[in-house]
Computed example of a mutant assay.
Amino acid sequence: MTTANTDELLTVPEVMARLKLGRSTVYDLIRSRRLASITVGRARRVPVDAVRNFITYKIEEAA
Rank of each mutant, 00 (worst) to 15 (best):
R45T: 09
V46W: 08
E60A: 09
Y27S: 04
S37T: 00
T6D: 11
D7I: 08
M1K: 02
G41P: 05
N5V: 02
R23E: 14
V15Q: 13
D7L: 15
T3W: 15
M1W: 02
F54P: 06
T25C: 01
L19I: 02
A63C: 11
R42L: 15
R42Y: 13
K58Y: 06
V46C: 13
R42C: 07
L19R: 15
R42T: 13
R18L: 07
V46S: 13
S24F: 05
T39W: 02
L21K: 11
N5C: 01
E14V: 01
S32Q: 12
T3L: 07
I55S: 15
R34L: 03
V26A: 03
P13V: 01
A63F: 14
S24L: 03
G22M: 06
A62S: 10
P47K: 01
R42W: 12
D28S: 08
S32C: 08
L35Y: 06
R23T: 10
N5G: 00
A63Y: 12
A36R: 08
D7K: 14
A43N: 11
I59L: 15
S37V: 00
V48C: 08
R52W: 11
V15L: 06
A36L: 03
A43K: 15
M16W: 05
R45F: 04
T56A: 14
S37G: 07
R44Q: 06
R23K: 12
L9K: 12
A36E: 09
T56M: 11
L19Q: 10
R18K: 14
L9I: 04
R42D: 09
N53Q: 13
A36W: 05
A62P: 11
L29Q: 08
S37W: 03
V26R: 00
I30M: 07
R23N: 12
V51Q: 12
L9N: 04
E8Q: 04
T56V: 07
R44K: 10
E8Y: 00
L19P: 09
T25Y: 06
A63S: 14
R44A: 05
N5A: 03
I38N: 12
D49G: 06
I38F: 09
Y57S: 14
T56E: 15
M1H: 04
R33L: 06
E8D: 00
T56G: 06
A62V: 05
D7H: 05
T25A: 03
A63R: 13
R52G: 07
A4D: 13
I38D: 14
T39F: 02
R33K: 14
V51R: 06
L35D: 01
S24V: 15
R23W: 11
E8K: 02
N5E: 06
D7S: 10
A17Y: 01
T56D: 14
I30V: 08
L21D: 13
N5K: 05
I30S: 04
L9D: 09
K20E: 08
E14W: 00
T11N: 08
A62I: 07
Y27F: 10
K20A: 05
L19G: 08
M1Q: 01
Y57A: 10
A4G: 15
D28L: 03
S37K: 00
A43E: 12
E14Y: 06
V40P: 05
A63T: 05
E60K: 13
T6E: 15
P13C: 01
